[in-house]
Design a binder for these strands. Sequence first.
DNA 1: CTGAAAGCGCTTACAG
DNA 2: CTGAAAGCGCTTACAG
Lengths: 336, 336
Amino acid sequence: MASLEEVARRAQVSTATASRALNGRGRVSDATRARVRDAADALGYVVSASASSLATGRTLSIGVLVPLLDRWFYSSVLDGIATRLAPRGYDLTLYNLTDSPEQRRHLFQTSLRRGRVDAVVALSLLLTDDEIDQLLALRLPVVGLGAPSPRLATLRVDDTAVARTATGHLLDLGHRRIAHIGQSTTEAAGSGIHSLDIPTLRRQGFEQALRDAGVEPAGFVAADFTIDGGHRAARELLAGPDRPTAIFAASDEMAFGALFAARELGLEVPGDLSVVGVDGHEMSDFFGLTTIAQFPHGQGERAAEAILGLLEDGHEPAGTALPFELVVRTSTSPPR
Amino acid sequence: MASLEEVARRAQVSTATASRALNGRGRVSDATRARVRDAADALGYVVSASASSLATGRTLSIGVLVPLLDRWFYSSVLDGIATRLAPRGYDLTLYNLTDSPEQRRHLFQTSLRRGRVDAVVALSLLLTDDEIDQLLALRLPVVGLGAPSPRLATLRVDDTAVARTATGHLLDLGHRRIAHIGQSTTEAAGSGIHSLDIPTLRRQGFEQALRDAGVEPAGFVAADFTIDGGHRAARELLAGPDRPTAIFAASDEMAFGALFAARELGLEVPGDLSVVGVDGHEMSDFFGLTTIAQFPHGQGERAAEAILGLLEDGHEPAGTALPFELVVRTSTSPPR
DNA sequence: CTGAAAGCGCTTACAG
DNA sequence: CTGAAAGCGCTTACAG
């Protein structure tokens, strides 16, 4: 790889001038700039990331913290982020936050502190107070997406409203026995994790909507955000004597699981059971699933824009809530 | 962030010794090493990535080239790679290879040449000869995963065998009207892209199996690797007068689409139509889909190990084919 | 507008 | 075993 020095020599200028000509900072005559550019092109010169970073303190790279790489939702968000970062010349360094305490510690205490990234995007992560401290101690711009902490500038959909909308849709159809499949976060409460987390907010929205309508919840089963989780939870809910006529699942994947469970039990959807999910999963259309779409790809794009805005202009992300939308399909109808 | 110099001062040694004590290269007395380590801990010192890279030429980061971030298959592979990289102290820089010619050019001519990564993993990418030239010109270790080029050290499953196994399963069940949903790569052939690409290999395997059995293909429809693609293709295949009794889809997502199409058309699976996919998608179990599982997460792990082996010991990846396995479920049976 | 020089924070022969 | 010094490849005040 050619160095700046070779470029400078070929263009017959100093490296200082070559540097200025190439990166556009500082005055350089048009003629000189052209000569330097030609030399750089001829030599196929590309600035060294580490040398440039060391000199400027900027890396042109954004760190993205992801809890689960292989969930559709997160990979869509990631794709959205990548889509916006690339044209701006930023690389994306991916940090997969696992459950392993040692790995997490290493991530916060070492990886992120090596100075490899200019800013961090944290995707709906459950972080401990300590971890948030460490994140803030980086003194780097940070944007959360659905992050459950008031200490992080966060883009979020109004998850309570999402749940109220979903539940309200079922109520409007006339359902009075509505159950919820969500994620239990009781353990989380004890571990210093804030309860602004998404599953809790959705559960609260569900309960609010019912309370406002004067209806008792017809059950809650905790599950993780997978088809399998939704499947098990729905089997449990549908096994009892007076089973619900409708289920609000906290994610589309959980809702798919509920649909499979209904089919196995010989229940007709929506006749015997209505199901609503959340996400607008790419497959929800095929399943005929009524859902609250929340456009994760667009969320990723927004997060990328927010972090670039913070980084380049110091603009705090606008506090507007992210959009969501009820999409009615064939998995919901009035109860029989 | 504390610098090496502060650590050295606190431990009362030179930065040279502090550096040696911390990174384990060169002789340092145990007492000195302990003092330096204590000082580093006390100051929360972490080596600067850019300074260290500039001095050593190593970045401790691996670039991963991905064609599509939001496909289950690729995000599983990515997760597998991340799983293996993190414990070895490597970061993962993600490069999303889009269809945009300018973005691709920028990626190969600039991003990858900034020296930000020590090695590259390329996931089943359709690269032009030019792009491969540029990749090789990086003089970095490169490992492909399912990459359709003999010029890249590549881990791959035997895709022809995969397709023969799937097709053979249908033949064994007694099917004689078997169609294939795959991806057309005719355009690719003209653009300097090698025809070792996966869709072509699968199609060839399909044709081989039929030829060996003396059976004529009952149709081929091109589609992209999505539910929607498989859905459309299946509708087309099933619309004709003498429709196939079985479909071999080149991916599980395509197969899901075929299952939805069958349901819409009032065809019973497997009675009226048998369907086989490829991948072992997380949802295939719920769909009862017979498939050829190929364990993408494990593929990612293998790819990560291969690139680290190349990087650290210069070991070329072992040429063993990646495993696959026929998983028979309820979407296949003998034809009526 | 341009260049000489210092500096970014490490690492590593080279001496001792 | 340890330190002084050069060097990795840029960038950027500072002079001119």
